[in-house]
Amino acid sequence: MKICIVGGMIDAKLHSKIFPLQKSELITSIHLIRRQAYSGNKIICHSVPQWAQKLLPLAECWRLTQLFGVCLFHRPKVLIAFGTMPHGIYVWLISKLFRIKTIQHIMGKNDLRLTFSKQRGQKIAMRAVRSANLVAVRGQPMIQTLLVNGVNADNIFIPQNLHDFDFFSCTIPTIPEYELIYVGLLAAYKRIDLMLESFASSKPNNNKLLIIGDGPEKNNLERQAIELNIEHQVIFAGKISFQNLPKYYCKARSFIMTSQGEGLPMAMIEAMSCGLPVIISDDADITEIAKNEVNALITNSHHKDCFAQAIVRLRNDESLYQLLRHNALSLRDTKLVEYSVEFQSRLWTEKIESLYST
């Protein structure tokens, strides 16, 4: 069976989603519509030329044209969108022209433009999702959101990203160089501004916050750190290769995330695999993995005082810290099979087969 996937993401995260499909015996070829080139078994990548990548509207027009061409000349049986905005919109529109079955894979609340009230794109995103034959999500909270918005419960399933528990591990105990670490995009919905305010309110003294990642908010956040007088305690490390991430997790004591638009963040799972308790908000599907006072401290409000209190509590309560650390490491025992390529490949195969079983 031929399928077509429209998606983005960094290579490592794309691999964690697409590799189970590559391993499926049902699938013979995967046409991938992506800005950057990507290679792999069964994959035929239709990437944007280098000269067109610099201008976003041109790059997106190119991708939409490529999707149309793939459907016209190769006739895939299924269109899959990794992310609703804009990929899911492209898939929805093109599928109507060619009468192809679709799967919408929702990454998180921000993907549906549900992070902020009256955020542009909510209606069209939800319309695309409702029209899909199948909808993939990361956990039960997102399922409830979709049910309220009229999505058929029978069409929803929960695939997981692949995760290597052996790769993300700290075998040799070290003295942490950083009190806190964050890994991810520096974008508005990630609320790094709130993270900096919370860290400053916790009176860090000599404790440090390591921020790994890049994005449109980086310059603003660097200025904010100076304004808060914590520029010497906050290290903006920029992009770090995926292969080097475990080394940095192992240099930190705890993981923090203050987002308002997540799904089920892999950075949180990576950190817990390395034995880091997490400080995080009750957002989207996060509580599928993070459990308050078990392996995490979960705030019920996006307010700096709530996060600051959690930071101080983990800083000063060693017994609580060790309990959360122990339980974070036990994630391997409960999720090793579910996050394996064999399990996920079988799940995707069954779901795609179900599209043509009736």
Rank of each mutant, 00 (worst) to 15 (best):
V129R: 06
R130Y: 12
R130K: 15
S131Q: 13
S131G: 02
A132K: 10
A132E: 06
A132M: 09
N133S: 11
N133F: 00
L134G: 00
V135Q: 13
V135P: 04
A136L: 12
A136K: 12
A136Y: 06
R138V: 10
G139K: 04
Q140H: 15
Q140F: 14
P141T: 08
P141Q: 14
P141L: 15
P141H: 13
P141W: 12
P141G: 10
M142P: 08
M142V: 05
M142L: 14
M142T: 14
I143N: 06
I143F: 11
Q144D: 14
Q144L: 03
Q144F: 03
Q144M: 05
T145E: 12
T145M: 07
L146I: 00
L146D: 00
L147D: 03
L147Q: 02
L147H: 05
L147P: 00
L147K: 07
V148F: 06
V148K: 06
N149K: 04
N149T: 01
G150V: 01
G150D: 02
G150W: 00
V151E: 02
V151D: 01
V151C: 02
N152V: 04
N152W: 03
N152K: 07
A153E: 14
D154Q: 08
N155R: 15
N155A: 11
N155I: 02
I156A: 06
F157Y: 11
I158P: 01
P159L: 04
Q160E: 10
Q160M: 05
Q160S: 11
L162V: 08
L162Y: 03
H163C: 13
D164E: 08
D164T: 04
F165A: 08
F165E: 11
F165V: 07
D166H: 15
D166T: 07
D166G: 14
D166E: 15
D166M: 07
F168Q: 09
S169K: 15
C170V: 10
T171V: 13
T171A: 14
T171D: 11
I172L: 04
I172W: 00
I172T: 14
P173M: 03
P173V: 10
P173R: 05
P173N: 10
P173T: 06
T174G: 11
T174H: 04
T174S: 14
I175P: 01
P176M: 06
P176R: 13
P176Y: 02
P176L: 09
E177G: 06
E177H: 12
Y178I: 01
Y178G: 09
Y178R: 08
E179W: 02
L180P: 04
L180E: 14
Y182W: 11
V183I: 12
G184A: 13
G184W: 05
G184C: 08
G184K: 14
L186S: 06
L186N: 02
A187I: 01
A187M: 01
A187L: 05
A188M: 03
Y189N: 12
K190V: 01
K190S: 00
R191L: 02
R191Q: 12
I192V: 07
D193E: 15
D193P: 04
D193A: 15
D193Y: 03
L194S: 02
L194Q: 12
L194H: 11
M195K: 04
M195D: 00
L196F: 04
L196H: 00
L196M: 06
E197K: 13
S198Y: 03
S198Q: 09
S198C: 11
S198G: 05
A200Q: 15
S201P: 09
S202M: 11
S202C: 09
K203L: 13
K203S: 13
K203F: 05
